[in-house]
Design a binder for these strands. Sequence first.
DNA 1: CGGTGGTGCAACCAGTCAGTTGCACTATAG
DNA 2: CTATAGTGCAACTGACTGGTTGCACCACCG
Lengths: 104, 104
Amino acid sequence: MTDDAAGAVFGALADPTRRQLLSAIADRPATATELAGALPISRQAVVKHLHALAQAGLLERVRSGRQVRYQVTPAPLSDAVSWMARVGGQWDDRLAALARTFAR
Amino acid sequence: MTDDAAGAVFGALADPTRRQLLSAIADRPATATELAGALPISRQAVVKHLHALAQAGLLERVRSGRQVRYQVTPAPLSDAVSWMARVGGQWDDRLAALARTFAR
DNA sequence: CGGTGGTGCAACCAGTCAGTTGCACTATAG
DNA sequence: CTATAGTGCAACTGACTGGTTGCACCACCG
C-alpha cells in the first residue's frame, strides 16, 4: 500500500508555490535564499515550503559551508503515478499502460 | 501549459477522504448518500468532497430521477502525470518514459 | 393528494496552513 | 577578532477548509 506516500506527494504538490519551487530546483539546485529572491514571498515562507517538499521525500538537503542547497529526489513521484494509474487505468489506455509500468 | 489543471488535480487528491471516494467511485459509480453510508462523515461532507473532485474534472454528475450518481472521468489525471514527468524525467528513467507518452 | 426519501443551500465552528516578523546562531571574509 | 551573510527557530496573524447542523425543495409511491 503506497497510498500514504502518494498522499504526501499530492499534498506537497497541491500548492502552486511549491510546484514552482520544485520545478525551479529541478532545473538547477538552489538555496532557500536564492529561491526567495525570485519569488514575492519571504525566505522563511520558502523554507517552510521546502520543508514540506522534503517531508514528502521530493527534496534532499545538502549542506555546504554555511549554505544549504536543495536538490530533487523524484522517487516518490512514482508512488503518486502508481496511485493514479490504479484508479484511472480502467478507462484510459495510457493510464493502463502506466499501471503496468509502475505495478508493485 | 497544463499546470493549472495539474494543480487542481493535486489539490483534489491531497485529501485522503477524497482519494478514498474517488477510488470507491472508480470501482462502481455511486450517489453521495450511498458513499456517506460507508464513511464516518455526514452526507454534506461527502457532497463537498465530490464537488471538489468534480471541480478538478475527475468526476461527472449524472442525474437519474431524484438521485444523482457520480462516475469517474480520468482525463485530468493525464495532466498531473505529464507535470510530474516533466520535473522528474531528468532523473528517473520510468518518469522520462512517461514524459514521452504524455508529451503535449 | 399527502408522505417520504434523496438533494441542495446556507450558516457556523474548529483546526490547519501560508505568510510575516523578530531574534539567535554559525561560518566565512577582511 | 569583528563584521556580515546565510541559516534556523519561535510566535503571531489572517485566510482557507473539512466538518457539522438545520431547513427548504423536489420527485416518486401509496
